[in-house]
Simulated scan of single mutants.
Amino acid sequence: MPRIELLEQIYTIVEQIPVGRVTTYGRIAAMTEGATPRMVGSALRNLPAGHQLPWHRVIAASRKLADHGGAERQHQKLRDEGVVFDRKGRVAFDLVWPD
């Protein structure tokens, strides 16, 4: 499958993540026709300026934020949406989408 089609699938899935919920790179990859979790991360790292995708709702399988330059901004955006982190920095499993 051409890369552009996988990017479109990834972006379509990310658009659907509800406010106050998160999903993982792996869950998104599994919903596509061939993307890997690493490809999902790359797609989100390379979003064009001015995009409206809720990239901040995508987290690592450990339910923690990935270690990247935007991690503090991501943490704040999620807190602003009501996402709660435990003392180990994990998001509650019941907030992972889809159910």
Rank of each mutant, 00 (worst) to 15 (best):
M1E: 11
R3V: 10
I4Y: 15
I4G: 00
I4E: 14
I4H: 11
L7T: 13
L7V: 09
I10K: 10
I10W: 15
Y11M: 04
T12G: 12
T12Q: 10
T12N: 14
I13L: 11
V14T: 02
Q16D: 05
Q16L: 09
I17V: 15
I17T: 03
P18A: 09
P18C: 04
V19H: 12
G20T: 06
R21Q: 15
V22Q: 05
V22H: 06
V22M: 05
V22N: 05
T23E: 08
T23I: 05
T24N: 09
Y25I: 00
I28A: 00
A30W: 06
M31T: 00
T32N: 08
G34M: 06
A35P: 13
T36L: 09
P37W: 00
R38Y: 00
M39E: 08
M39D: 06
M39C: 05
A43F: 14
L44A: 08
R45C: 00
R45K: 11
R45P: 00
N46M: 00
L47H: 11
H51K: 10
Q52E: 15
L53H: 10
L53N: 05
W55N: 07
V58S: 07
A61E: 15
A61T: 08
A61G: 10
S62N: 15
R63G: 05
K64I: 05
H68I: 11
H68N: 12
H68R: 13
G69Y: 12
G69C: 06
E72T: 09
E72S: 08
E72W: 03
Q74G: 08
Q74D: 14
Q74L: 04
H75I: 01
K77R: 15
K77S: 14
K77F: 11
L78W: 07
R79H: 14
E81I: 02
G82F: 13
G82D: 01
V84I: 09
V84M: 05
V84D: 07
V84Q: 10
F85V: 00
R87C: 03
R87T: 07
R87Q: 14
R87L: 09
K88F: 05
G89A: 09
R90N: 11
R90K: 08
V91L: 03
V91N: 09
V91P: 09
A92R: 10
A92S: 13
F93S: 14
D94A: 08
D94C: 03
L95C: 12
V96W: 07
V96F: 07
P98M: 11
P98C: 12
P98K: 04
D99T: 01
